[in-house]
Write a protein that binds this DNA or RNA. Sequence first.
DNA 1: TATTTAAGAAACCATTTGGTTTCATATCTA
DNA 2: TAGATATGAAACCAAATGGTTTCTTAAATA
Lengths: 114, 114
Amino acid sequence: MGEPLATKHDVFQAIADPTRRKLLKLLAEEEMPVTVISGHFPMSRTAVSKHLRILSEAGLVRERRVGRENRFRLDPQPLQEIKQWYAYFERFWENKMAALQYLVESDEPVKPEQ
Amino acid sequence: MGEPLATKHDVFQAIADPTRRKLLKLLAEEEMPVTVISGHFPMSRTAVSKHLRILSEAGLVRERRVGRENRFRLDPQPLQEIKQWYAYFERFWENKMAALQYLVESDEPVKPEQ
DNA sequence: TATTTAAGAAACCATTTGGTTTCATATCTA
DNA sequence: TAGATATGAAACCAAATGGTTTCTTAAATA
């Protein structure tokens, strides 16, 4: 049923690395083979390949063999978990604003509570 | 101006650890001193304290000395960055839905694309 | 067919991470 | 004041992380 396709790696941990976040943005636009992808990063192809493996195990990218190429593309579905997690805190965000009159998006110091 | 208050630690990296995510949920409810907080976790107080330090450096918690206690509470503000990051991909998610007829927010199995 | 190209596997390495225990210090309280 | 309590700092450690280089294999091509 609606269970994740491949989640050997945690989504939160997968997106923790800035290189992997950049990979996701890159692969959101279009499908690409590993060599082309690695051309966008200042590290070895092997290193990029490892990051892709982690993203793949978190279900965030899909891979497809085409000849000798391995083409990757984004699968945003597991990011729903991030959204749901965030949504929980959004509640407190609202509460805080209302109840404690936090000065949101300002440089005013937060007023001590007592 | 509206810049983050303390971001020696990356927010994405801060929420990558499950213990720290649990800490955020715990501290969302109420302010607590370190000893009380650490009672909720199967590890040493010092370990919890280190996690709190990381959350603090990411701006996700505020600390306040009260006598000999150090009380922590959630500050959800930096989570906005997560939301913004996520929002970018939500766009692709929508696209996929439209183009590939994904079944969103249901328990139906995702239809294979080919 | 011989050669080039694409990619992963393996071995390795330095640094970071997440934990520990011990110790020092500041603040309560009997 | 003496002792108990709350906490962080320091030193330490094993495992995970993010990178490297080398080697092998499969597919495309001259």
